[in-house]
Amino acid sequence: IDFDSGGTDCNIVVKHGVDEDLDEMRHLYDGKALSTVAREIAETIPDDFSDSLNVIYFPQLGYLITVPLQSHMTSQESFIIPGLDFQFCTQKTVFYKSEQMYQMDESIGDLHSIIADKEIALIQGLQDSVSKYSPMLIDVSSVCAELDCLLALAEAAKKYDFVCPEMVDSDVLEIVEGRHPLYEQCMDSFIGNDVSFGTASDNGTSMMDGGGSNATNMSVDGEDSLRVMLLTGPNYSGKSVYLKQVGLIVFMAHLGSYVPAKRATIGVTDRIITRIQAVESDSKIQSAFMIDSQQMAYAFRNSTRRSLILIDEYGKGTLHANGVGLFCASLVNFLDRGENCPKVLSTTHFHELFVHNLLPQNHPLLGHFKMNVFQGTLENEERLTFLYR
């Protein structure tokens, strides 16, 4: 296939030397190039028509000379041009034949169409030949695609300082200074954060006083391990990015990729279920809150102890009081599963949870974490500084 010649007209052109008959027809056709014929005819007719004269080919009518329809062409006599035979006209164009056109009809006739048909036949033959090896080609394509992915993951791991995660059979998730692989490329500096499920964590706090004391007595794979992590903090403090980066790190580890962290120990996870973003569509008659609720229902039905569930501010799409109740009921549903509770990371702005103690107190599976904000005075003005930790 001659890709250079076939690009302008969006047609397939077979290269020279592939088929002898095709090359002979092209040589004959090129010898009668229409642009050359048009220039020759233009020298024999009045100047009023020669500048805009063209030669075209219609499969049913043969070769024709075309000139633009001019304003003085109102009667049959006005269409007469010496040396040309009038054929027909349209609203903008008049078509003629000359002796040379008749000769071309006889000598090369439908050669242009024959050349096109010949090329189509050759390409079809090529397709038939290649299709015999389609299973092998599909296998090769799959291997190349996998190799391409592995090389891309290896290059990213080296370029962006990823580490090899430790994959274990136990139900544990521990990430030290994890980072979001995309967000960290969009800013000058990115602050890494830890996450720990199934191991003792110094950062977890009891729900008894809304974040006053450290959570303790968390044993690996035991019933008292942290299973539900509740994260609070102001807007733009990094809560959603934190949820996404944990999900991405777990996903990348299961792909066999290095991960953006200082260290990571990840147990085999059967599902990553998210309630982070509601994608609305005119094709579905559903509100954003309905979509959110369906996502939560899916998490309830399909999650196991080995699942990771990410919930970002569920309940904010309905009445405030209803949202608080639904969010609390969702967390309690997971906690009631005991040792079969999945690993749950959730964020919320519902402060009523702590003011009215709506969640179980001193529950060993539940930990409250918050994004730190530094509040200070600069130049006699109170300032808030997000620490993104």
Rank of each mutant, 00 (worst) to 15 (best):
V241I: 15
S141L: 08
V220Q: 13
Y388G: 01
L310Q: 02
G212K: 11
E77C: 06
V55D: 01
L226C: 13
N217E: 13
I249C: 02
E24K: 14
Q76C: 06
I175E: 00
H320V: 12
G212M: 09
F334C: 11
S219T: 14
V143W: 03
V13C: 09
V130I: 15
T44S: 14
L22P: 02
Q70P: 00
R26T: 05
S287A: 10
M207L: 14
C89Y: 14
P260M: 04
V220D: 03
D224L: 11
I123W: 07
E381A: 14
G267M: 02
I114A: 13
L359P: 08
V228E: 03
T205W: 00
R26V: 06
V172E: 00
T36V: 13
K343I: 07
D21K: 12
E119R: 12
H363T: 06
I115K: 03
N302M: 08
V13Y: 10
L319Q: 12
Y298P: 00
G62Y: 04
I309C: 08
D51I: 09
T265L: 04
E24W: 06
D9Y: 08
I273T: 10
G325V: 05
T265W: 00
D128N: 12
G222A: 15
Q87P: 00
G212D: 05
H351V: 09
V94P: 01
K159F: 06
A215V: 12
Q100F: 07
S50C: 07
T385V: 14
N302R: 11
L378R: 12
H349S: 10
D139E: 14
S206I: 14
M104Y: 11
D148Y: 09
Q100A: 10
D21H: 08
E177L: 10
E106N: 09
V250A: 02
R179P: 03
S142H: 10
L387A: 08
Y133W: 06
E24Q: 13
P165Y: 00
K15P: 01
D85F: 11
I108M: 09
L111R: 11
F162L: 10
G211V: 04
F334V: 11
A157F: 02
S113Q: 13
F190G: 08
F49M: 06
I311L: 11
T199F: 03
H368N: 10
